[in-house]
């Protein structure tokens, strides 16, 4: 089936098998390997991307379902060499150790901060329930999201 998607501002058209998962389309067809595959069972959130602005687990979406959609992956967050505030937060607050969960964590945080620009720590922890960090580095991940929230609120 032919699909057309816009990924990080670039429009692509491809013929895909219906069973092709969106995460495989992004990684294997578009070579956007920043989106990771972790558990492949909808649990860990490493494959999280933005589908029409909302965080979804791309291992649990068929590419054909994304036909016509706007997709943002981790590769599409930085603008003109400037890190997105959430990326900057992870850098500044040491929000990653091995880095495997990081792209998914960041994409979830981007969606979450759009809907809740001034979250409490508890709200942040609830928001990232669908993202697992096997380094258990949650403390600094929460701090990274707090940093981003503050930076985005101040509009800088």
């Amino acid at each position: 089936m032919q699909i057309t998607v816009t990924v990080n501002g670039v429009t692509y058209t491809h013929d895909v098998e219906p069973r092709l998962l969106l995460v495989h389309y992004l990684r294997d067809v578009l070579n956007l390997t920043g989106t990771h595959i972790g558990c492949d069972t909808s649990q860990c959130g490493a494959c999280t991307i933005l589908l029409n602005g909302k965080a979804v687990k791309s291992c649990t979406v068929f590419a054909v379902q994304a036909d016509g959609a706007e997709i943002t992956t981790i590769e599409g967050l930085a603008r003109d060499g400037q890190l997105h505030p959430v990326q900057e937060g992870f850098w500044e607050k040491h929000g990653l150790q091995c880095g495997y969960c990081t792209p998914g964590m960041i994409m979830t945080a981007v969606d979450f901060l759009q809907r809740n620009p001034n979250p409490t720590e508890e709200e942040i922890r609830h928001a990232i329930e669908g993202n697992l960090c096997r380094c258990t580095g949650y403390q600094n991940i929460v701090r990274a999201i707090q940093y981003a929230a503050e930076k985005m609120r101040s509009g800088s």
């Binding site: 909808s42 959130g45 999280t48 589908l51 909302k54 965080a55 979804v56 687990k57 649990t60 979406v61 979830t108 969606d111 979450f112 928001a127 990232i128 329930e129 669908g130 993202n131």
Partner: peptide, 9 residues
């Protein structure tokens, strides 16, 4: 229910 990503879909 589930998590933020699951509730989006």
């Amino acid at each position: 229910i589930g998590d933020l990503q699951v509730r989006n879909m």
